[in-house]
Design a protein around this nucleic acid. Structure first.
Ligand SMILES: [Mn+2]
Ligand SMILES: [Mn+2]
Ligand SMILES: [Zn+2]
Ligand SMILES: [Zn+2]
Lengths: 147, 147
DNA sequence: TCTTACATTAGAATGCTTATAATTTAGTTT
DNA sequence: AAACTAAATTATAAGCATTCTAATGTAAGA
């Protein structure tokens, strides 16, 4: 069994344990998320499944994403100007985003505890977490720029 | 002359040098931004000025914020679920945000160059910048929680 | 004072997301 | 296997922040 398939099975088990029904649409959204490496938007998921489910409502995609978020199966990535993206990799990792094409790539870095501690001291906040994104130009877009 | 007044004068000079006309509405939006410490939204600016300018359009606020952004007089802060916030402090600094009340507070920390360098090595991106926000509970909301 | 390119205005339009209400169905109970 | 029912899906409307449009107004130079 491939890694995405295994993650899908685990996710289905988690859903059942939470008393959530497994519908064909829900299964398809989950399957697409698990197999996708590209942090898709709700609309990308909707469009990717419209051949298989021509009558599926976009609300169903949103409803299911909400269910998955609440159970902790996916993470929501929010940026300013456009729509949310969804990440089925819930392990601790950061993202680097291409300014040109919008591609989002995972990268790992030891968590920035010193920053959280300093922020706590300086501001008096009780710190819970942080977000960090790095921006730049991906290798593809660097190549494109050369020609 | 206070610091906000001085920043306002400098900003007006920058605008004039860029060939941008100084209208009463533009002046008021800029003045409000410079004197505000709270990273206001477009709507907050609009509402704060509606006594002085009862006929001002919300589009005027957005138009002017766009002009200020293009010239580099303000920074736009974007978060997932709600509207953009605007920061007239364009110097290098980070933000810490209260999960309870949404308050945004500045804090300074040496720029995270090692993170940018590692991301560059690992992903092959040509890195340009990064964003970092810390989240937690502000002192006020900590007090409230105790009672 | 005259002129005009730029700015403002009201309102319509857009794009993403959520709400509503009717219909269908997954999973349990008989 | 059939019936039941709470949950899920659907189509559509609504909400909200932001941008667009086209008519009107005005800042600043000539
Ligand atoms: Mn990821
Ligand atoms: Mn700030
Ligand atoms: Zn790229
Ligand atoms: Zn607070």
């Amino acid at each position: 069994m491939t890694v995405p398939e295994q993650r899908l099975q685990e996710a289905l088990t988690t859903l059942k344990e939470s008393g959530v029904r497994i519908t064909p649409q829900r299964h398809a959204v989950l399957e697409y998320l698990m197999q996708s490496m590209k942090h898709p938007t709700a609309d990308e998921i909707y469009k990717a499944l419209e051949d298989k489910f021509p009558n599926m409502s976009v609300a169903t995609v949103y409803n299911n994403l909400r269910v998955f978020l609440d159970i902790g199966l996916v993470r929501e990535l929010t940026y300013g100007d456009s729509s949310s993206r969804f990440d089925c990799n819930t392990s601790d990792h950061y993202h680097i985003i291409c300014d040109e094409c919008g591609k989002i790539v995972d990268f790992h870095y030891p968590s920035l505890n010193e920053v959280e501690q300093l922020a706590e001291q300086v501001t008096g906040f009780d710190v819970s977490n942080h977000r960090l994104e790095v921006y730049g130009t991906c290798e593809n877009c660097q190549q494109m720029a050369k020609h």
